[in-house]
Design a protein around this nucleic acid. Structure first.
Lengths: 202, 202
DNA sequence: CAAACAATAGGGGTAATTACCTAGGTTGCC
DNA sequence: GGCAACCTAGGTAATTACCCCTATTGTTTG
């Protein structure tokens, strides 16, 4: 599960086989799918790696698959492969977040290089995502009241100001605040502010 | 200076004229340049707007101009216009930050729409940049010692901890800290942390 | 229904921050 | 030389934050 996989989606089995052969030659794990739908059904988002995707396929096209993945917030890096140069399609795909877009015939080493870059990108992205997920989990463990207090503390308010804003006694705010610090594993207000900022930036 | 300008760079004067006519028809300011070099020489980075740029030109190409602008950190949004579809070039240009890349013949309204989007993007980008510039100016007004103290405070350290780290008395740290708050126009540690974070994120 | 949790609030004490004052030593510049 | 800045540091008092305790009320859940 930890080592990256290159997912190949191509309806042409001969192409898929030769891609598999090429990519396996550099000791990368490969999984092939004969259609976009097969990929949607069979892909486990927890697996790191990247997607090598044919643009034009019967049924769901590669572009449509990209759209579906975007809607589902699945952000596996996509390297499109296309047989015939359509500039508009390529530009739109890249603007929509495609990692790369290359034309056949391509240079084998060039493709391998791009795959390596896509895998690195995915790895960094997963690291960022896992940080954010841990943060969200911490925030989710707060009660509604604690979240309110947290927000006001992050705004720079003192306990007394928070108490006035929420119509509570200063004592109660102290309790909530201490609980927030404990639950968030924060040792200072600075930590809290940093966490809150990181969380809202996506 | 405040209203956006569409900069057109095209060696074909007939094309430049017809683009100017099209764009001026929607009450946008236009400046035309007959070569990439002319644009580099004549463009004032303070002017908001976007760049409509021909890919292929004698002398410096549109792509080369994009590279030069990137090196000089000039981030005017670029809409490339090309006569012949080169997928690799389009993809590289977009990956390098081009705002858009369209082929001739293009739909007039489509181009105008993209220009409007580019102008909006530039406007937002300039707003972000000016915020960052103001922040940098505030930070630049700090003395070296104040900056050290700021960094440690942002790390979440107490005055005493800062004093120990820097080999100072707690009293001295208090003075620096107060001066930092005043110079940064911050009313709380939370403000300081936010400013420091925004500044390091580019 | 008992146990756990959430929200409320008080007492009492220590530590830290903030605001106000003074003041000496160094350095760079006109 | 003198002025302005920076860095240093002390006193004092008010405010605020942090920590350990108890306690009541309501809700949720096994």
């Amino acid at each position: 599960m930890n080592e990256p996989t290159v997912f190949i989606v191509d309806d042409d089995q001969a192409v898929a086989r030769s891609l598999r052969w090429l990519i396996e030659s550099v000791q990368l794990k490969v999984e092939t799918f004969a259609s976009a739908q097969a990929f949607l059904d069979g892909y486990a988002t927890t697996k790191p790696g990247c997607l090598v995707l044919d643009v034009r396929m019967p049924g769901m096209s590669g572009i449509e698959l990209q759209e579906r993945l975007t809607v589902q917030r699945i952000r596996v890096p996509i390297i499109f492969i296309t047989g015939h140069g359509d500039v508009q399609m390529a530009v739109r795909a890249v603007q929509a977040g495609a990692f790369d877009f290359i034309e056949k015939p391509f240079n084998d080493q060039d493709l391998l290089d791009r795959i390596q870059r896509a895998i690195s990108f995915d790895s960094e992205q997963r690291a960022r995502d896992s940080l954010r997920a841990r943060l969200s989990a911490l925030l989710a463990s707060l009660t509604p009241r604690e979240r309110e207090v947290l927000n006001l503390v992050v705004e720079g308010m003192s306990n007394k100001a928070v108490a006035n804003t929420l119509g509570l006694s200063a004592k109660t705010v102290e309790v909530h605040r201490a609980k927030v610090m404990e639950k968030m594993h924060a040792r200072s207000v600075a930590d809290l502010v940093k966490m809150a900022m990181q969380n809202q930036e996506t």
